[in-house]
Design a protein around this nucleic acid. Structure first.
Length: 273
DNA sequence: CCAACCCCCTGAACGC
DNA sequence: TGCGTTCAGGGGGTTG
């Protein structure tokens, strides 16, 4: 379930092994994960490209090529990227393989095939959805005033606001619960009912919590490779997500679970107001 | 404008 | 043992 901290972990782990490498070939085992263009155009476009940068925006990853063309990946629920020697057999759910010029392969694996990959020529309109994203959580302009401006006329629950990628990019169901717990705000509070103090605590909790989990996720390339890119090590540090019925780590009273917008939400009715 | 649903898709967990 | 149901949820879509 990659959200921003997991996606950033993938970026940090793989970046040194991708920069200045060249993609010499592409195999598509399942064209379903190629969002655009056609598989034929995708292979023709990606083959021969030199990798200049590996970046993240929200939950999207992007390989920027020296030509200015780019490859954008969204892992959704179960997607993962690995770099493995060409000699290592690929997994059952490996859908796309990019051959690198150093004897390795960049592989995209995705059990549920919900993830997507886009190739775009330089200057071509971006259809991946990246350009619709809101502010990065670590942007200094993400402050109480920004959130208040997005919220003042909305009766939506604050949790739905956090999950809205066009407001803040990168937060999913796990970290929205963790952020709201840290900020002491109930997930079902209406946005328009939040006070200035609530917005201050929320604006502080967003980068603080995400950065905390990025740091807890720190992993070496070797460990990452051993776990096939599936080992995220921050779950022991979760305070409320998935812990309905368990005692609140602060007050000891039972954590509650409600459903908001079809999403399971766990919170402490005593600590979160 | 919004909420409430469906869809994609598989595997784990659970009830009988 | 095995079969059916439910749940997990990111993001796009449709309907009321």
């Amino acid at each position: 379930m990659p959200e921003l901290p997991e996606v950033e972990t993938v970026r940090r782990v793989l970046e040194p092994h991708l920069l200045k490498k060249k993609i010499t070939g592409v195999q598509i085992h399942n064209a379903q994960v190629i969002a655009s263009p056609s598989p034929e155009q995708f292979i023709a476009g990606v083959t021969g490209q030199g990798i200049a940068a590996f970046t993240r925006r929200g939950k999207f990853l992007r390989l920027l090529f020296e030509s200015g063309d780019s490859l954008t990946v969204h892992l959704r629920m179960t997607g993962c990227l690995t770099i493995e020697p060409q000699t290592m057999p690929s997994e059952k759910h490996t859908h796309v393989i990019f051959t690198l010029n150093d004897g390795n392969e960049l592989r995209y694996e995705d059990v549920r095939r919900l993830g997507k990959i886009w190739f775009a020529k330089s200057g071509e309109e971006d259809v991946s959805g990246v350009k619709e994203l809101g502010m990065e959580p670590f942007d200094s302009a993400l402050n109480a005033a920004y959130l208040r401006g997005k919220c003042k006329n909305s009766k939506k629950p604050v949790k739905s606001m956090l999950l809205d990628q066009s407001i803040v990019a990168g937060i999913g169901n796990i970290y929205s619960d963790e952020i709201l717990f840290a900020a002491g705000i109930r997930p079902d509070r209406a946005c328009s009912a939040l006070t200035d103090s609530d917005f201050e605590r929320l604006a502080a909790a967003i980068p603080e919590r995400l950065n905390f989990f990025i740091e807890k996720n720190a992993i070496s390339f070797e460990e990452y490779a051993l776990s096939k890119g599936k080992d995220y090590r921050n779950t022991p540090y979760l305070q409320v997500y998935g812990k309905a019925g368990e005692p609140c780590p602060v007050c000891g009273k039972g954590l509650h679970r409600i459903v908001l917008g079809g999403r399971s939400s766990v919170f402490c009715p005593h600590c979160q107001i």
